[in-house]
Write a protein that binds this DNA or RNA. Sequence first.
DNA 1: TTTCGTTATTCCCTCCAGTATATTACGCTA
DNA 2: TAGCGTAATATACTGGAGGGAATAACGAAA
Lengths: 127, 127
Amino acid sequence: MQRKNAHALKKEEASPGLHGRLWIDGTEGTFLGYGRIILLERIREHGSITQAAKSMKMAYRHAWELVDSMNRQSSKPLVEAATGGRNGGGARLTKEGARAILLFWELYADFQAYLQRQQKKTRLLLR
Amino acid sequence: MQRKNAHALKKEEASPGLHGRLWIDGTEGTFLGYGRIILLERIREHGSITQAAKSMKMAYRHAWELVDSMNRQSSKPLVEAATGGRNGGGARLTKEGARAILLFWELYADFQAYLQRQQKKTRLLLR
DNA sequence: TTTCGTTATTCCCTCCAGTATATTACGCTA
DNA sequence: TAGCGTAATATACTGGAGGGAATAACGAAA
């Protein structure tokens, strides 16, 4: 962002027209946003914070902080992590985590449609 | 903002619940956003980029870059600036600039109402 | 008890958006 | 012509978000 603070995303390529971003704040700031949801999906897919972070080219440290932040702000943890053991441990999505993903994508899709509807109002201004 | 990224805003205090941001991209990236609209309003109010920037505690250099970026991407300039003269020059909003402010606040208000409507969907998740 | 890959945690570094500062260009007024 | 407050432009600085790397803790399995 635009390394944004609150909502960094790669580039989003800036096509002319209306754009927007959606996120959910909790008691400590950001709770769920686009990037965090992707991270949750990758954790579900790989069963490990390390692998999830690698798959997004994100530093493990950053990924862990995001997971910790989400767990602290959620009514119930979204991710459960275990250290040691068979393969060194791992992380799995809780039922609550899966619900969060579904809810966010629902909001997200609705929002994209909303932006599409509003789009036309901006056309007269741009070069 | 959000270093971010393209849409830094002061803090927005992160109250729990659904939040969002809206902006309009042009050919070179951001064209209009919340901060740029505030800047346009301050220019209209003060008749000078220097004073507008000061009133927002923004560096003149940054303010000037934003104005330049908006003018370059708009079909017609939003701000006209004059150097030298009576009081050293100044800057005034064009008709197009005033239209941009109105349009944006219209989109913004509608968007806030939209967020309000979607708000309830997030309640079950937060602690 | 050794091995292994993960989570958890610490410390340092890098990058860059925005700031700070300085200088020049400008043109009306007196 | 000198003075003024602004626009315009260049250069250097800064703070903080995120990255990189290193280390300890962990616990099942061989």
